[in-house]
Every structure is written in structure tokens, then in C-alpha cells.
Design a protein around this nucleic acid. Structure first.
Lengths: 186, 186
DNA sequence: ACCTGAACACCGTTCAAGT
DNA sequence: ACCTGAACACCGTTCAAGT
């Protein structure tokens, strides 16, 4: 039976979760699928788009925000964080994939629309949604990097304040408070 | 004359600015210094710490915050962004270097102290400073990624809202408004 | 159409041997 | 102490040739 692009993506996700982004290599991927590295290029143009498709898979699992703006954006932020934490090293993946435009932009367009329909300028709504997006990606990137580092690093004793669920909740609360104050939303 | 660790870092910064992080390789670095790749390992244990030292150099140029909390944090945020934008691809560099603890933690400790001396719990101050940190790094990472992509990518027509100076200023304003509101600071 | 086999042009890192 | 020469174990990608 012939290989599918979905088969390749499934195997890529499995390697990612088990061994991390540094070990997700075209050769290892070929091995996992019982195929030579070159065969992968019949299903994907290059590694870059492979990673972009994995990033798209991750973002596809974050639920679209709905309801009143504040709970909607709050749940969107934690939903995005949960989706990223569920797939190892995916914050870096999504960040670089989005930069090259291969990533689904809806991810940040949806929350912007929520703010826009609450009465905020589309210009301000875009910027505010982007601010939450950047905070979440930066926060989770640090969480996942530390997780990778702990997996085979030293105990890493007094390394300062750690990025955790509590710092995440406070960060998003600050942004939502700021949105409420600056755009005078209820 | 013998090579210094500073010589290696200087050459690394030059390659970074001219060719980007993807082309900053131990072999190219050796070529730029007129030396074999293996010779670099007499001055640095590995590439990872080389990158961490470059990240430290970048962070060393961001001025420490002082004065009233709001202008102090505002200037610290834009100072951090300016320092990162001055060195190509440095946002990714700093993010990964900080994850492994090799980076100077003072970078985020200073703004936290500003908030603490304004009357905020050290716990909350740490989290709020980390929130600004994560936003800035996420924002600049996207700016630099897009800059890299434009350097030899397609025109990239309607790629949605771009990370720019305006979105940066609004994002930090939201965070500062949130800090003022949540911690009831003047 | 899909895959093999084999190559091309690279990597980071190590280490005996020279000076 | 510092560097060379040469190797080791990898990379992503391409492409004729097979089926």
C-alpha cells in the first residue's frame, strides 16, 4: 500500500511527542515509516512545509472563541495554551510556521473578530488579539523549552521565576484588564 | 597571534547580522576567523554556549529601568525591543538561551524589582514582568521572522495584520493598563 | 505514481599529532 | 596552549533507475 501525506504527518507527530523537535528528522521519519528518506519528497515538497502542516494540526484543535468578549478571549487563550502544551515543542513550530505565512491565520483572526463585534476598531482589535497571541506563544515556548531542558538537563536549581499556569493566568488577566480599560468595555 | 573568545563572539555577531542564524555555523565561523572549525572548541565548549553568549551580549545593551513604574517599564519594553531588533534573529536566540539558564536572568529581574518597590507582591511582580518579557519576545520574534522571510521570499501579499511598532506600543500599553488596574497603581 | 540506491553538499564535535 | 588534519556520525535534498 502506498504512503499518504496523512501517514507522514501522523508519524511526524509521534516522533515529535516522543523525541522532540531536534530529533524530528527526515531520515528518522523515513525509518518510522519503513521507507527511504527520499520517498518522503513524493508527498511533501520539503521539511519546512511538513512542519507547517504539523503546526496547522495543532492550531486546528483550539476551539474558536464565542460569547461575551472577556470569557471568550480568556478561554481562547487557555485553549491555545492547552493545544500547544499537548504537542511537544509546538510553540516554536507554530511561531516559525506562522512567520512564513503557511499557517492558518484564522487562529488570530477569530479573537480579533470577537473584539471587533464588541465595538473595538478592527485596527485595535487586530493589535490586541496579536498581543494575546504573542504573550501565549512566548509563555508556552518557555514552558516547553524548560520541559525539554529538564528531560535530560541538570536539576537546574534556583533558576528564577518559572513560567507556570499561575503566571499564565495572571498575564492574560493583565491583558484583558488592559483591553477593558483602554477600550472601555464592560 | 592567538584567538580570543571575544574575537569569536565578534565574528559570530558579524555573521549573524549579515547572513542570519541559519548560516551561523561553526565552519563558517572558522572560515571568517581564518581557522579550522575544531580550533573554536579551544575557546568555547560548544555551539550552544556560543549562542548563549551572543544572547547575553544583546541583553547587556538594554538599559535598566528606573524612575516611576509606568514610564520605567514602558521604556524597558521598548529598550528590549530595540536591542533585539538591532541584532538579526536575536529574539529566537535569547528565547532558547534563557530556557537553558545560561542567559542573564537580571533581564527580567530588574523590571520585577521596579514593580515590587511600587508596592506589588514579589510573586505578582515576577509574573507581570514575565508577561511583558514574553510579549516582547513573541512580538519581536515575529518581526524578525518576517524580515528574514521577506529577504528572499515572495512578496507575501495579503498576509494579515503585521507585527509593527504600532502593534507593539498598543500591546505594551494594554499590559501596563492591566498592571495599573489589577494592582491599583497610580 | 511511488519507491530504491546512491550520491551531493553540508552539519557539530572529537582527537591524535604537530608547533 | 593553540591549531591542523582528518575523521565520525549525522543532516536535507536530488535524481536516475527500477516497479
Amino acid at each position: 500500500v502506498a504512503l499518504t501525506e496523512d501517514d507522514v504527518l501522523d508519524a511526524a507527530c509521534a516522533i515529535l511527542d516522543e523525541f522532540g523537535l531536534a530529533d524530528l528528522t527526515m531520515r528518522r521519519l523515513g525509518d518510522a515509516l519503513g521507507v527511504r528518506p527520499g520517498a518522503l519528497y513524493h508527498h511533501l515538497p520539503n521539511k519546512q512545509t511538513l512542519l507547517a502542516h504539523v503546526a496547522d494540526r495543532v492550531l486546528a484543535t483550539v476551539p474558536a472563541p464565542q460569547g461575551q468578549w472577556r470569557p471568550a478571549l480568556s478561554e481562547w487563550a487557555s485553549g491555545l495554551r492547552a493545544a500547544l502544551l499537548a504537542r511537544r515543542d509546538s510553540a516554536d513550530l507554530v511561531a516559525s510556521a506562522r512567520a512564513m505565512g503557511l499557517c492558518r491565520l484564522d487562529a488570530v483572526a477569530h479573537p480579533a473578530r470577537v473584539l471587533a463585534s464588541a465595538g473595538v476598531t478592527t485596527h485595535d482589535a487586530d493589535a490586541a488579539a496579536a498581543a494575546i497571541w504573542h504573550f501565549v506563544l512566548g509563555h508556552v515556548a518557555e514552558e516547553q523549552a524548560r520541559r525539554d531542558w529538564e528531560r535530560f538537563g541538570r536539576p537546574d536549581p534556583a533558576a528564577g521565576p518559572t513560567a507556570t499556569a499561575a503566571t499564565f493566568d495572571l498575564g492574560t488577566a493583565l491583558l484583558l484588564d488592559g483591553i477593558a480599560a483602554r477600550f472601555s468595555l464592560p
